[in-house]
Design a protein around this nucleic acid. Sequence first.
DNA 1: TTGAAAGCGCTAACAA
DNA 2: TTGTTAGCGCTTTCAA
Lengths: 326, 326
Amino acid sequence: MTLQDVAKLAGVAPITASRAINKPDSVSSEVLKKVQAAVERTGYVPNRMAGSLASSRSRMIAAIVPSTVMSVFMQTVETLNNTLFDAGYQLMLGQSSYSVEREEALLEAVIGRRPDGIFLAGILQPGRARTRLMASGIPVVESWDLTQTPIDMLIGFSHLEIGRAVAKHLIDKGRKHFAIVLAGDERADRRATAFQQVARAQGLGEVFTVNVGDSRTLRSGRDSFIKILQGAPQTDAIFCSSDLLAMGVVTEAKARGIHVPKTLSVMGFGDVPFGADMEPALSTVRINGGDIGRMAAERLIDRAEGRKVDKPIVDVGFSIVARGSA
Amino acid sequence: MTLQDVAKLAGVAPITASRAINKPDSVSSEVLKKVQAAVERTGYVPNRMAGSLASSRSRMIAAIVPSTVMSVFMQTVETLNNTLFDAGYQLMLGQSSYSVEREEALLEAVIGRRPDGIFLAGILQPGRARTRLMASGIPVVESWDLTQTPIDMLIGFSHLEIGRAVAKHLIDKGRKHFAIVLAGDERADRRATAFQQVARAQGLGEVFTVNVGDSRTLRSGRDSFIKILQGAPQTDAIFCSSDLLAMGVVTEAKARGIHVPKTLSVMGFGDVPFGADMEPALSTVRINGGDIGRMAAERLIDRAEGRKVDKPIVDVGFSIVARGSA
DNA sequence: TTGAAAGCGCTAACAA
DNA sequence: TTGTTAGCGCTTTCAA
């Protein structure tokens, strides 16, 4: 079933059938009716690949994220996807598994598909993929971070400021002995460093740090707390690089009869949907992932449709969510 | 930059350049070298859309899931995506938000893209979309359920048997007064019904049921437990339609000083990655989502490449994971 | 408002 | 092993 068949059946030229389907306003109501009838009768589904090739607009947007399971980025991806779909776009999803090589391979494959836009969870470091991407001319949104040198558009926030804000929050609560639990992730490192600087500036001791590497699990959170107990038993506040790690710390503390937050404050990052209803409720840093997804989609669509984007760079900020655990 | 340009630069015909790029073995090493040099020099990235149109193979697979945030299906999607990528395929992801209309719209849009295969989280009910999909001839994998009338291929398991197995497990533990907490989902209903039948067959009383509708949150689990306390205070075992709801029940029980599992057994469904490390560890029904994703990818690829699929229908089963909470 | 002609960039089918 | 020709199914451009 092709447009040809439908056109023949409706007794019009293919291009007229195309117009009836895509821009119904540009066609007489008589023709419109005939074409619609023909479409109905044949069960015709337009071949978007052919359309894309002819118009060089694919109506596809690609998104690349490190992980899709229990990942802080999924709220962003979901909102991105929904906003795109409502505007007639489809989402291609790739996952880099926190690997630079895989990200480059993914990007190479994605560029070949000629998407109308690319969403990146994070910022792309200089390298072959970045060069290629810039050369491709495809609109890009980088996200979840800030940089002076974005490829194109950027919807993010400052990890540095988060580190500072969390440190201040804990100091305000009267805490003095800090520890950090983080996964292998450059952004988490920056939050941790900013946190340490504030602590140091306040004349507090060194921050005891546990790095769990790629093991971003609740179990790692529990194990990390045991290490903290051994290496820095006086610790009274812990900043974790994810809510899951924070849940692990809280779980282990409770299992050992250490009261959260009386004896120990715990802060996470990301605000998982159920953090508010845990016992104790999880204090954390909230990022509005949905906002990021929606703003990215809007900008990518605007670009795809030839419109100028007013605010290509946005700092969406964050909020410290003070709940039971800190 | 098109294949033409590369071919001209290498001093060969376009089709020869195409072969050098796609089937390097079918070309002399001399030509191969020249073409590779030209590709390198121009930074040429093949236009897969044009290739797809010409070959009627898109090397795209579409997946449709109800939700992508905190969803039990994401392990399947992640494995599906990785397996596909390693074979040179890309994933298009659509989310139906548990809405039949949206699912139909999604499917219509997806068919227009001419993917080489479609993965469905669940089974597609009869209707326009199902008819269209069958008419399209696109290979389909339905999943996470069993049916006598699959559209095409099927990788699933029996919700009925799960309901029975959970009931037996709780009865074996000496429990007598059951309640169920479920979200609005036809599959959860079937598990619940099977559960009730076993309870009834054992001469136990009616199963007190709380339906949380679309509110699949930890909070709903907590609230549901309060309702159970009011409506059926003698309850000593609760089967929840998701781990998140089960976590809510456990949280509320603990907050009220009710001991899990001594006084109350709680079972979830799905086996979230951190269930094993919670306190108490969550008893649940484990589905190997990764297996489903991998098997689906393999079958879809086989079909796309014209190979016959040996086992188009697979029951991957499930396991009862007896941990601390039951 | 409608249509004719051309072509998007690639690959299938055939021929040399 | 390499090349010629034709065409995938649609939309752009221009003309009527």
